[in-house]
Design a protein around this nucleic acid. Structure first.
Length: 366
DNA sequence: CACTCGTGGAC
DNA sequence: TGTCCAAGAGT
């Protein structure tokens, strides 16, 4: 039996949502596939970033059958730039699972949804509540922050996940799972923000323990995180005498799995960039190159480390390229690079190559 | 369970 | 410039 406070919280939130909720593309439909795609794209990714990817995706892959039948490279190409590429690989694999095990129809049972790769408890609850109005709890970054403040949580969120899940499940309106969950996320995204929350317009102000204690800016408590290492990387743009460039496809798992790249590797202590590139290419591709002039230096930050890509033009000399540390190797022209999915840092290298080509065509070298 | 896994926005 | 953190999941 829900308490009076819970009934009040539900009513206040739903009223606020009807007036102040966001109008988002994936809220125009109850198609579980479209909602699923949006939920995966939105993992650790801001709404503004997702919208253009979502719109393009639904035109290119409008149904579960379409994505299941697509090849992984075109799926990764559509995901290019979004990051966390395991999401795209899992989405692709899950669509094939649904075709084989569920006759192509997105399952409505929570356990069946949770069994799909890439779908955890929050995403499952998000899909089933949005598509079928099921009253299932969610606990994403927004909801964690809102609920932590609601109860003035005095420990870091990571140490209170079971409590927060129970609270989310106790609060969700049994008749309005869809709107309640969407409202809770909107509240976190637009009112109960990480910095300077707009408590004066919050529908939960009078119930919020953090607000009543004046501690909303200190909750949730910050988690400690390790310092990020910085790596120097030597990268080779290897040209053959036909004007082609060598690229390789990374192994399917792990960092940037399945994407293409310009080969290279980590600079060891006391090693020059040129020596590093020569050594890495010999070790990983089994070919001998001559390292030439520098093309570009690219700084890039990942979640847990930072890299500096020191990119040099190189000339192929000898040897037959071997897939020692990668899945596939190709010689391609500059124009063909568009067809392959690359990590963001490598797109800067391609842009530099294009710029160099444009300049040399305006003022050809003698 | 702590760690891995991208990128961009906001400040 | 650095720091935090986004509709988290897999291991």
């Amino acid at each position: 039996m829900p308490s009076f406070a819970v009934l009040e919280l539900r009513a206040a939130l739903l009223t606020w949502y009807s007036q102040s909720g966001r109008n988002l593309p994936w809220r125009q439909t109850c198609d579980p596939y479209a909602i699923w795609v949006s939920e995966i794209m939105l993992q650790q990714t801001q709404v503004k970033t997702v919208i253009p990817y979502f719109d393009r995706w639904m035109l290119q892959f409008p149904t579960i059958e379409a994505i299941a039948a697509a090849d992984l490279q075109s799926v990764l190409k559509a995901w290019e730039g979004l990051g966390y590429y395991a999401r795209a690989r899992n989405l692709h694999r899950a669509a094939q699972d649904i075709v084989q095990q569920h006759d192509g129809i997105f399952p409505t049972e929570l356990d069946a949804v949770l069994a799909l790769p890439g779908i955890g408890r929050t995403t499952a609850g998000g899909i089933l509540s949005a598509a079928f109005n099921q009253p299932l709890a969610i606990l994403d970054g927004n909801v964690k922050r809102v609920l932590a403040r609601l109860i003035a949580l005095d420990v870091p969120i990571a140490k209170a996940l079971p409590r927060l899940w129970k609270l989310s499940q106790d609060l969700v309106d049994p008749k309005h799972g869809r709107d309640f969950n969407q409202a809770l996320m909107d509240l976190g995204a637009t009112v109960c923000t990480p910095h300077n929350p707009a408590c004066l317009v919050c529908p939960w102000q009078s119930h919020c323990q953090a607000y009543n204690l004046g501690t909303q800016s200190q909750i949730p408590m910050s988690e400690t995180r390790a310092p990020v290492p910085h790596k120097q990387i030597g990268v080779a743009v290897i040209w053959n005498d036909r004007g082609q460039i060598l690229i390789d496809r990374r192994k399917p798992e792990g960092l940037l799995g399945g994407l293409w790249e310009f080969p290279g590797g980590k600079v060891e202590a006391g090693e020059t960039i040129e020596a590093c590139i020569q050594r890495e290419i010999q070790e990983e591709l089994g070919i001998t190159i001559a390292v030439g002039e520098r093309l570009i230096v690219v700084n890039h930050t990942y979640t847990h480390f930072r890299v500096t890509l020191n990119v040099h033009h190189c000339r192929y000399l000898s040897g037959d390229p071997q897939t020692i540390a990668c899945d596939e190797i190709r010689w391609v022209t500059l124009a063909e690079l568009d067809q392959f999915p690359f990590p963001k840092a490598n797109l800067q290298i391609i842009a530099a190559l294009r710029q160099g080509e444009a300049q040399s065509s305006r003022a050809p070298l003698k």
